[in-house]
Design a protein around this nucleic acid. Structure first.
Lengths: 107, 107
DNA sequence: TTGACATGCAACTATACGGTTGCATATATC
DNA sequence: GATATATGCAACCGTATAGTTGCATGTCAA
């Protein structure tokens, strides 16, 4: 899970996921062509996404085809984000009383 | 949104969110007491969480009380993660054909 | 087999990041 | 007012990170 959070932290990597979402099976060069950096830099990002299991690859001859794997994102939502979602109602009451106290202070 | 992703990338900051989820209104010292680092380091993490609007604070005298704000996490799920969730079915078919091709290759 | 094309690997650089120490400031309490 | 407590601020340090350039390797096509 740690690897997934780290992988998602970089905007370039999120852009790559967006592109693979739009069209799966793209090669490294295809992906690199519309990124503002060298092919090697994109390759590094893709390696990190692969390590986090967010991207899976398939070799076709000399071409490396990349596919989005949304499962780890779903895992994070289920196992980590979920509890905060559930807590939103209680949290809102916390924030409400907090806001009220602030209002008192600034008033 | 960028700030939220960056804020969530660090395990110490996620631990802080977990702690504020368990009990809101904790002071800096309380939070720092069970983190394996100095108070100043925790203060920096909290500043980043505040900047990302994941934590809101309220001053009571010399004490700084911290509250979890789960809204930005919900925003990310809604605006960014959501589309990948929706795409899971199509993505699975992609992955399926991909897996099949891989099986062919390794067979 | 030679040349072009797709990717991998390695070294290097600059900066961001997580953490520390030391000191300053503000608020309680006696 | 003096002292203790809670936090803030700033300088510094080591390492991780994102990017580069240069070259090696592997595959397709004439």
């Amino acid at each position: 899970m740690e690897e997934v959070f780290r992988a998602l932290a970089d905007p370039s990597r999120r852009a790559l996921l967006d592109r693979l979402f739009a069209a799966g099976g793209q090669t490294l060069r295809q992906l690199a062509s519309d990124m503002p950096m060298t092919r090697q830099a994109v390759a590094k990002h893709l390696a990190i996404l692969e390590a986090a299991n967010l991207v899976s690859v398939h070799w076709r001859g000399r071409e490396k085809l990349h596919y989005l794997n949304p499962v780890p994102i779903g895992e994070i939502v289920k196992r980590w984000v979920g509890k905060f979602e559930d807590a939103r109602i209680e949290a809102l009451t916390d924030l409400k009383s907090h806001a009220e106290t602030r209002e008192k202070k600034s008033a």
